[in-house]
Design a protein around this nucleic acid. Sequence first.
RNA 1: GGACGACUAGCUCAAUGGUAGAGCAUCGCGUUUACAUCGCGGGGGUUAUAGGUUCGAAUCCUAUGUCGUCCACCA
Length: 703
Amino acid sequence: MELSKAYDPKQVEDKIYKLWQESGFFNPDYLPGKRKKSYTIVVPPPNITGVLHMGHALNLTVQDILIRWKRLQGFKTLWLPGTDHAGIATQNVVEKELKKEGLSRFDLGKEKFIERVWQWKEKYGNIILEQFKKMGSSMDWSRTRFTMDEGYTLAVKAAFLHYYEKGLIYRGKRVVNWCPRCQTSLSDLEIEFKEEKGKLWYIRYPIDQKSNIKNQKYVTVATTRPETMLGDMAVAVNPKDERYKNLVGQNVVLPLVNIEIPIIADRLVDLEFGTGAVKVTPAHDLVDADIGFRHKLGIKQVIDERGKITKDAPLPYQGLSVLEAREKIISDLQNLGLLEKVEDYIHQIPKCYRCNTTIELIPSEQWFLKMSAQGGGLAEMAIKAVKSGKIKFYPKNFEKPYLEWLKNVKDWCISRQIWWGHKIPIEGSEDVLDTWFSSALWPFATLGWPSSAKATEGKAQKNDLQNFYPTDVLSTARDILNLWVSRMIFSGMEFMKKIPFSRVYIHPTVLTKEGKRMSKSLGTGIDPILLIDKYGADATRFGIAFQIMGGQDIKFLEDNIMMGKKFCNKVWNASRFVLFQSGQNKIENAKSAFNSKNLTPADKKILKSLEETIKFIDKSFDSFEFGQAAHRVYEFFWHDFCDSYIEISKKEGGKESKNVLAFVLFSSLKILHPFVPFITEEIYQNFPFKDKQKFLMVENWPK
RNA sequence: GGACGACUAGCUCAAUGGUAGAGCAUCGCGUUUACAUCGCGGGGGUUAUAGGUUCGAAUCCUAUGUCGUCCACCA
């Protein structure tokens, strides 16, 4: 045998990947044999901003295991790669780049800026796809898509117009989450709440002199955001609150602004909190907007898109930033004797998930997609798809948060005031679409939808939609369950009249050993590319798969990757031994490798163990139990095969033992292949059987 | 404030009602036709706590604690 003593992934992996690519077998159209049933996975398209992180590495491992397993089982497998333009995220990284040159996007202007983002996409967008290859991903590169390529853009346009004509898209002025830095609206899912120490200010609103209220000069309200009082339209109390019953219907004078506003009763007011009386600012708070709408209070916007006080506020405050205004208002109130007390208060502050700027709530003209959970609405379709069991979640407990979210979902604000993205296809609108609007079309837009719009030009083959939709499994991270998964589901049902995938696998989150989220900014992340460099892709994959136990989050241990490397070396050396044996024995045929009449008990035992292992792996893969499968194959190969059977065969091998050795190894390569594709392929290429395939990748899965 | 999950050997995890296992770490022995990235063997656990169900509980139930993730309009 020509195999070297220790396995060196660097000598093997790139070489093997190149051979696979040249074979064309990543492409379902060129797979050998009769393959009637298709098996499709579309990869969750990574943002073009990023580099591969452990979450990707895990997800790629999982998907490649499934795809390789099904390919070996004779399915027409398609794993479709691609990337996402990731609107705000990408715009932000390019802006950061510009900042280094002392420029802003406004200095460049819209056209030049977008050009610049495309340059970024060309330069960095492919890096992540190259990293996919490093992981051994058997994706069909001829079908690579980008959420802003030509055909995809047509799909997005068609989808928008479809909703628009159906009356599901409307425009309206609503209080929306607004990032003063990104200068755009954000959906609820794009904000993150962070705990901050703040104050709770108790402010006295003088009761109107004309009111016949005795013994009470003020109503005191508690607020964490005194600056918004400039836009107050009412003071609200709970209708059941006895303390304020006599005040409802009366007026107070809004301090600093000196206008009269009413005291109203509304059930949304919590009796327990603060004083039980709350200032109502319909322009800058969602609950207040709701209250204001019901009581027809009107709206006064006092904070603008840049986070400055508007001209609708009293002169002294105009142009101040929110924080400056807050300071001045507090000191002014203090001078007037209207500040009753101040308490420390810890609360959740909404932050932009991309740039961490504090979110302002401001009224703004936006586009919305109706999300009704009744009457055949989009949310209802997505609910039914899961409730009916057509789409199953693994683990099942993710169904609950999914359904809860959809049940209570508000209309989806789909417009963004940024430059990088799909333009809203309506005359006069400069807005672009929320990046998830295009991502929602991923399972079918990538396969050529809508064929009528000639979107098939280029990558997708003519009949891809018929052949590969619905896809089989969507494997993704849990934090985009609603952001992405639910939206793909209703989009698929709306446009294709069919669910986009039948099974959703929510993969475990990779945490640090301490159980904390891996974070780039904290420096607690681990770069899978470095792991590949150090241990090889096979070892990295095996080490990751080994740790996937149920839906449990993974406290990542590099030791497991080390274990993967040792395991690979074991496979390598066992193969060296067996191939040397069979080389002497001149076995030429896998099918008739041994004569089953002359088997020793040990021969029979290892064959039975192999059979059971195969069954177990099939069952495990089918239920996404990758760790269980990895443990079993490890146990089988290392202990049953190497420690026990090989050692026995050396000392008291039967007539057929050398043949059985070769046969069991041959089968082992197949069942190991989904985990560790490179090393198994390399060994396979050195196997002496004459009736083997060109590549292990397209062998027949053993039974 | 809700929902979900975790808590088992020093570490990371198995074991879903029947005498608690693996890998790593640790200790001892060992170079026999692959592999020292190895082989053989040893030590190490009242399964977070308190109750309950059961012939029998790591496993089921109830509380408590700690940690984690997601959701949420308490100003």
